[in-house]
Structure formats: structure tokens, C-alpha cells
Design a protein around this nucleic acid. Sequence first.
DNA 1: TAGGCCATCTGGTCCT
DNA 2: AGGACCAGATGGCCTA
Length: 140
Amino acid sequence: MKPCTPTCVDLSSECDPRDLEKFQSVVRKRVAANARERKRMQGLNTAFDQLRKVVPQWGQDKKLSKYETLQMALSYIMALNRILSDSSRNSAPHRQWLDLQYDSLQSESYPCIVKYSSPTENERMYTSFSCHYEDFQVLT
DNA sequence: TAGGCCATCTGGTCCT
DNA sequence: AGGACCAGATGGCCTA
């Protein structure tokens, strides 16, 4: 898995000490850069995990890939945006608001997600959206 | 076994 | 000079 790094090479026996020192400095910098890059990528993955938690994921027991997460977030934001602009035009009650969300979230908006149409799945979706609706209300 | 997804390493570029 | 960011390469793991 790990490609061979310069640390694999043993130069200690035949190198000029100054070259060796220079080489070791390069290796130290490379190792430090690798660690920083790992940390950066871990931060990025944490952000993806946080995004997965707030993005709808019904009927999907498998974790969304990074690409799917971004696609879903995009679609979700677009849908909420549409809901917001629609609801500002006519003040719909809660259930109508949810129905509106359902209309906005058809499968063509979520190409990465399998669409489930059973009452159970719809109910789960309403529950999920109720939660988001509360958050939405707090924010606005 | 092939393909998808991912973590890691690496070198390059840009910014402070 | 050092750090952040990026993209390509590579190899491991998992699933159909």
C-alpha cells in the first residue's frame, strides 16, 4: 500500500556526511508534509461525515460516497431553496410544507439514491423532514 | 475477478 | 522557508 519512501534507502555507509544531513532534512520535511496532508484529509473526511448527517439518506443503509454526498447536498439545498421561495408566496401549513418537499424531492433530483415508494419509507421520510423542518424554523 | 471507493504518498504551485 | 492545497499514482478493501 505505502509506496517506498526515501527512508527505505540506506545511504549511511557511503555518503558524504553533509549530503547525508541534507538527505535526512529532505526526508524529515517529506514526513512532516505527509503528516500534515493526512491531517488535512482527515479534516476533510470529518466535514464529509458532518454533511452526511444533515443530508437526507432514507432507504439507503449504505454510507453515501463522497461524490454522492456532494450531489445529495446540492439537490437538497436546491429543494429547500425552492420550498423557501414557494412558502414565502403562500403561507402553507406544516403538512402542506412537507408535501411540497416531497414533490421537490423526486428521484430525478437524486440520481444517486434509490427511490422507495412504500408507505413505510414515505413515513420515514416525513419523520426525517420534520426534524429538518424544526431546524429550518429555528434558523429563519 | 473487475470495478468502485478510499487512504496515503508525492511533487508541484501558490500564498504568507 | 514553510504551510496549505491540489492532482496523479498506487495499493488495499469490499461488493456484485
